[in-house]
C-alpha cells in the first residue's frame, strides 16, 4: 500500500484547503502518478483532476508532485517517491485553485495570447507551401514542442510575483518560436510588443523552468535570445 497525500479543496463545501491521506494498492508496480490518482478516484470519485492523453503530449495533468512540478502521466513513482516514500500531490503553485488539483489557468493563457502566437506574414501566400530550408526549420526545434502544461511558468518566482505583466517562460518560449521562424515577417512588431520592463526582463535566469519542463525544453535560453534581440534593436 502506498500512502498518497492529496490537496483537497471544494469551494462549495470547504472553508479552506486541506491535505487528505489515502492508501492506494499499487500491487508493488512502478505506476505513473496519474495511474495512482485514477486508482484513488475509483474509491473517491470526488477528487477533481484534469487528464487526457496519458502520454505526456496534451499537457492536461501538470501538478506539483512531491514538491516538483511535472506531468502525472509520465512521472513514475520510482522517480517521484522512490523506495515506497509517500506521494504528496498539490496543484501547480501560483495560480488560483478552482477545485482540488484543477487550477484557473486564465492568466497563463492570457500571457500566451499576448505574444500573438500565430504566424504573421503579409506577403501573398504562394500556390504551394512557403519554402523553408532544413536549417531554418531546425531553429524551431526545442520551441514548437511546448504543450502549454504550465509546469514552467508556475515554477517561476518572477511569474508568481507578476503573472499579469511578466509573460513567463512558456509564453516567451513561444514568442521566440515565432521570432525565429523564417516564414514570419513581424519581427519588429513582436519585439516592440515585448519591449517594456516586465514582459521579458522580469526573468532573472533562475532556470526553475528548465528544471521542470517535462518535454526537456529550455525557456531560459529562448529568453536570452529575445533579450539579445531587444538589446540589439535598442542599440
Amino acid at each position: 500500500m502506498l500512502k498518497v497525500s492529496v490537496y483537497r479543496y471544494n469551494p462549495e463545501t470547504d472553508k479552506e484547503p486541506y491535505m487528505k491521506d489515502y492508501q492506494v494498492d499499487t500491487q508493488g508496480k512502478d505506476l505513473m502518478v496519474l495511474d495512482v490518482l485514477e486508482l484513488l478516484k475509483e474509491t473517491d470519485p470526488s477528487l477533481a483532476i484534469r487528464r487526457s492523453c496519458r502520454e505526456g503530449v496534451c499537457g492536461s495533468d501538470g501538478m506539483n508532485i512531491n514538491g516538483k512540478n511535472g506531468l502525472a502521466c509520465v512521472t513514475p513513482l520510482s522517480e517521484a517517491a522512490p523506495n515506497g516514500a509517500p506521494l504528496v500531490i498539490r496543484p501547480l503553485p501560483g495560480l488560483p485553485v478552482v477545485r482540488d488539483l484543477v487550477i484557473d489557468m486564465t492568466l497563463f493563457y492570457k500571457q500566451y495570447e499576448k505574444i500573438k502566437p500565430y504566424l504573421i506574414n503579409d506577403t501573398p501566400a504562394p500556390a504551394i507551401e512557403r519554402l523553408q530550408s532544413p536549417e531554418e526549420r531546425a531553429h524551431l526545434d526545442g520551441l514548437y514542442e511546448c504543450i502549454l502544461c504550465a509546469c514552467c511558468s508556475t515554477a517561476c518566482p518572477s511569474f508568481w510575483w507578476n503573472p499579469d505583466r511578466f509573460i513567463g517562460p512558456s509564453g516567451l518560449l513561444q514568442a521566440y518560436r515565432f521570432l525565429i521562424d523564417s516564414r514570419d515577417t513581424a519581427t519588429e512588431e513582436r519585439l516592440a510588443d515585448l519591449d517594456d520592463p516586465f514582459s521579458v526582463f522580469r526573468c532573472h535566469g533562475i532556470q526553475a523552468c528548465v528544471a521542470v519542463c517535462p518535454k526537456g525544453l529550455n525557456p531560459t535560453k529562448a529568453i536570452g535570445h529575445i533579450r539579445n534581440m531587444l538589446l540589439s534593436r535598442a542599440a
Binding site: 500565430y118 507551401e129 523553408q132
Partner: peptide
Amino acid sequence: AVFELDHMGMPFSRTEEGRI
C-alpha cells in the same frame, strides 16, 4: 488544405529543397 496549414505556420519537417 495542407498548404494552408503551412501558411498558418505549421512547423513541418523539410526536404533539402525547402519543401514539406
